[in-house]
Design a protein around this nucleic acid. Structure first.
Lengths: 335, 335
DNA sequence: GGCGTCTCTGTTAACGCTAACAAAAATTGG
DNA sequence: CCAATTTTTGTTAGCGTTAACAGAGACGCC
């Protein structure tokens, strides 16, 4: 099959120049006469010529593709990040190749990275929110541009993160400001850095207010686990404020509280994290923390591109601050 | 930078064979002595050799990459599909390159497809739920393996779809079976085939029951638009059953009904579509229709691979039936 | 034992592009 | 107007792989 399209030589012949001149036009090389440039462009248009990325990648050793390794791209956070990354990359002329992995263990990550490397991607973005992912990155070839998102802050790897701590602190403080005596927390899985950061921020806010943090209740990001925690919280009369590690957990909590007849926000206030598009339509509308995924994507890509261009593998670090979005799920406690 | 890794010739030298023999081992060519094969494999392992996809793509004219064009990969449906596609492709040794587009108009789609073509992808999957996307596909080079998902049923292009009509019919029938006299519908945007199919199925079920379908209320997939429609429905005393084109619309409707004090399911029953993971934790838990994204992904990929291998561009068609998931948002009407 | 027929391995030539160098053309200065 | 530059263009040689063909052994058969 496959009648192969025209190649550079075909364009060159039509324009009456050498293929190298065509290459120069394509790559925006300065020393080409304007008239020649136009002739070449015309020939390109006439033939519908499309440069062959594989050939270019072969000779330059780099493709115009960025590999992304992520776990569950169905979750709102990762999905948004991926979409934003793709948009930003496209603007820079890069394609994005996804390598999602079922588990964030060592082997899976390495395998995904390997796959990307054999396609000679220009760089790799790893959305690596868990501990075990970090190890896999340590033994990577050192000359591959790499950026991790929401990864391990303690590793010497270029990293872009949402400021989980600040976000959680803001959420907790918002509840304290409303007059609550303490704030309970439904956390994400504790091997995720995101969770750890959010627990930290929550704890910091309580300690700063001279309060003793109650034990966090561990969830797994799902509404189901939020529901289970909510069933416990509903039975504890002293609970008046809950901060959940994400909006889906909050949904589960809201549902459990509703079932137990505990009204939100009148009896119990709830704050989530992520600001999924639906959060404004929960019952009641959910106060939550909105991370700026676009900003994270831009920062990551910029960091990656500067590595690709300069060749230096500096261990930079960048943090994006999230914003509190106040809605109706928070109110002062009843006396 | 970039100390380039070992190439085939390096492996060959170490194993004491020609590079072509290495190539044969790599591609599973039959006529290689077992002993030689082992020597080569050992050399590959020792050097940490990784084949260069770009070189292979150059000489074969095809990469091991599948391009996916999708619109909003943040929505649950597309995101799930993308993830499933990636998983399936990985099992077959293919990488997936995403080209998401902001709008599903002609130009955007063509541009995304162009980008994929210049990377010489082996095939393209277009998640093309709207009318305008179809046109862009017509003028594609005929020799590129292509599969559309949820695309235009009237176009002669290989197509995999969720059976929207059957799903909507099942949802509507479920409400009728519960005793409702008619069923209202909050639809998706009417330029999406998904929406059209769901409207059709809903209408079919009503007509088959000898009922006159009320006018569908147009939404845009978002909870916000569901909320707006819900506000209207809440004020219409005759409404006892609503089928929404997706779960997020349903969430908005539930919220509006709640605000107006109309209880679900006692006064009004609601059925959604998609079975997002949170649907079971809505208030009340949402009865909905679950499309099998994995099955769609498998079917698409299989169709694409058979085109890639055989070179024939047959205009196949495959439909995946969704399943009704009954929860608590449906009850018989009060008399 | 010679000869065709397998099975295995090696040699050579692409694939389409960029980098490095070489040559030609245009420009400048005296 | 000629030499010395500078700009513009062309030529050649790979990049790492597969495909096509060629050669070398091993084997069976007459």
């Amino acid at each position: 099959m496959a009648v192969h399209g025209p190649a550079m030589t075909d364009v060159a012949r039509l324009a009456g120049v050498s293929h190298q001149t065509v290459s120069r036009v394509l790559n925006g090389h300065p020393n080409v006469r304007e008239q020649t440039r136009l002739r070449v462009r015309a020939a390109i248009a006439e033939l519908g010529y499309r440069p062959n990325g594989a050939a270019r990648a072969l000779v330059t050793g780099r493709s115009q593709v960025i590999g992304v390794v992520a776990q569950n791209t169905t979750l709102y956070g990762p999905a948004s990040l991926l979409a934003a990354l793709e948009q930003t990359a496209a603007e820079e002329g890069f394609a994005v190749s996804v390598g999602s992995v079922r588990n964030l263990d060592h082997r899976s990550i390495s395998a995904a990275v390997e796959r990307h490397l054999s396609h000679r991607v220009a760089g790799i973005v790893v959305i690596a929110p868990v501990e075990s992912a970090g190890e896999a990155l340590e033994r990577l070839p050192k000359d591959v541009p790499l950026v991790t998102v929401d990864g391990d802050p303690s590793r010497p790897v270029p990293l872009v993160t949402v400021d989980q701590v600040a976000g959680a602190r803001a959420a907790t403080q918002h509840l304290l400001d409303a007059g609550h005596r303490t704030v309970w927390h439904v956390s994400g899985p504790t091997d995720w850095f995101d969770s750890v950061g959010r627990i930290d921020g929550w704890r910091q806010a309580l300690l700063a207010a001279g309060l003793d943090p109650p034990p966090p209740m561990p969830g797994d990001w799902s509404a189901a686990s939020g529901y289970r925690c909510g069933q416990m919280l509903a039975r504890m009369p002293e609970v008046t404020a809950v901060f959940t590690a994400n909006d889906h957990l909050a949904l589960g909590v809201l549902r459990a509280l509703h079932e137990f007849g505990r009204r939100v926000p009148h009896e119990i206030s709830v704050v989530g994290f992520d600001d999924v598009p639906e959060a404004a339509y929960f019952i009641p509308p959910l106060t939550t923390v909105r991370p700026d995924f676009d900003a994270v994507a831009r920062a990551s890509l910029q960091m990656l591109l500067s590595q690709i261009e300069s060749g230096t593998g500096g261990a930079l670090r960048q943090t994006v601050a999230p914003a509190l979005v106040a809605r109706e799920s928070v109110a002062p406690p009843r006396h």
